[in-house]
Design a protein around this nucleic acid. Structure first.
Lengths: 233, 233
DNA sequence: TCGATTTTGTGAACGCCTTCACCAGCTCGT
DNA sequence: ACGAGCTGGTGAAGGCGTTCACAAAATCGA
């Protein structure tokens, strides 16, 4: 598989093939977001400093990232907002909409199905499936009714799905992942706290909220105990 | 502020002070999870290879990580599961429970409040607040009733909260963050797609599901167009 | 037209993190 | 006892990624 680096994440392969550095790819969505906002305010151009401000990335880093796109800004002026937005959108594959299947219609699954941020950012959830027969037919949001997990194959194939969101209980995640891959899914966003095993060519990104809190807790602990580092003897 | 590296994430400061490398800290929760599982199966010891298998990290990396803890395993045998678990738990601050306030009781907020994975991994949500008066008093889960966002200060102070989860609409996030920080919160897990501005000493970790999908989409695009790299002329 | 100012693009240096390779130390069978 | 086989610890090397510093190029005012 190709477990994509999260940020610290994870493999080690960076510039896959002849593409952009992974770290850059992870930041392009941030730039896109910032540009959309800037455009809404009527700005025609923006500097790397402005983008830095809006995204929390250093301006040098912004310039380096954008230079990888060959996206030539104009010295003394900055970047053309509309043009840069289009360029990033193309690089990131936002010229098309990506059909996504959401597996698992529990609390989290329903929350994700209702999230308006996907549509505005290039992804469309075209199906919500669940293993629990009691949930079948339930409408989670306008135009989305919970379907049976047994129909995964058909759904993936008929609706040109290549990306899946896994919001199942932990114990079911690997099995569902296997079936998704078998059906043709090649990218998985996994919310279940397990390391999925998938074949080469399938990308997995992991979101583990409990782990995020644990990382924060580590730093909290260090804040509260200042200088715990007394020498032993 | 101290915007914590996600994985590619984000500042650049690594081994803060005399602590563990950030990349290692981000993996400790994974090891902990794996160890808990191993312990449930009755294994008394485990090798770095087993941990590697269970977490998706390379075995060399596992050993390097654990060596930072001074956690001496036994050559020829492996690590003592119970002992290592305790050691990681201590390093990561799991010997105590961390009180967390959840801000925003929309779909996502409710899903997070109901998530059983927090309690088992060291965090306890002690309050759910929302700005919408219509939601006040609503019970989201046993023992948790939605409280007013006006009481944030009091809640944070009285219940010894140092970590907050932000699940508000985007436009409200920065304002809430400011108030949380003012109330004494020093760690924020932010689900709103904005780069929060917080003072030094406050840690922010960002979860942006739409961005995760966009990153996957980037790689999907590259998969579908094999060798798009024809020379120009 | 020219100089001051702004801002990009980029090579070089630096630092973090991962991987490699191998030694040290433990167990177990004989 | 001792040798074979595992398995952890760790220095060295290499790869990515960020930051630095500055030259190149554009605008603007006089």
């Amino acid at each position: 598989m190709t477990l994509l680096p999260r940020s610290p994440r994870l493999t080690g392969a960076s510039t896959t093939d002849r593409g952009l550095p992974n770290a850059t790819v992870a930041r392009l969505p941030l730039y896109l977001r910032a540009l959309t906002q800037l455009r809404a305010t009527g700005s025609a151009t923006c500097s790397s400093d402005q983008l830095a401000e809006a995204t929390g990335v250093s301006s040098a880093n912004v310039r380096k990232d954008l230079s990888h796109l060959g996206s030539h800004g104009t010295r003394g002026v900055g970047y053309d907002v509309a043009h840069l937005q289009a360029e990033i959108a193309q690089a990131i594959g936002q010229t098309q909409e990506w059909n996504v299947v959401l597996v698992g219609a529990g609390h989290l699954g329903k929350a994700l199905a209702a999230y308006p941020g996907f549509a505005s950012r290039g992804s469309r959830i075209v199906a919500v499936v669940d293993a629990d027969p009691k949930r079948l037919g339930e409408q989670v949001v306008d135009g989305l009714v919970i379907e049976s997990a047994d129909d995964l194959d058909e759904i993936v194939r008929d609706r040109a799905v290549s990306i899946a969101i896994l919001a199942t209980p932990t114990h079911a995640a690997q099995d569902v992942a296997d079936r998704l891959v078998a059906a043709g899914v090649t990218s998985i966003l996994n919310f279940a706290p397990v390391a999925l095993r998938v074949p080469d060519g399938v990308d997995v990104r992991q979101v583990d909220v409990a782990a995020e809190l644990q990382i924060l807790a580590y730093h909290e602990q260090r804040k509260s105990s200042p200088r715990e580092e007394a020498v032993s003897g």
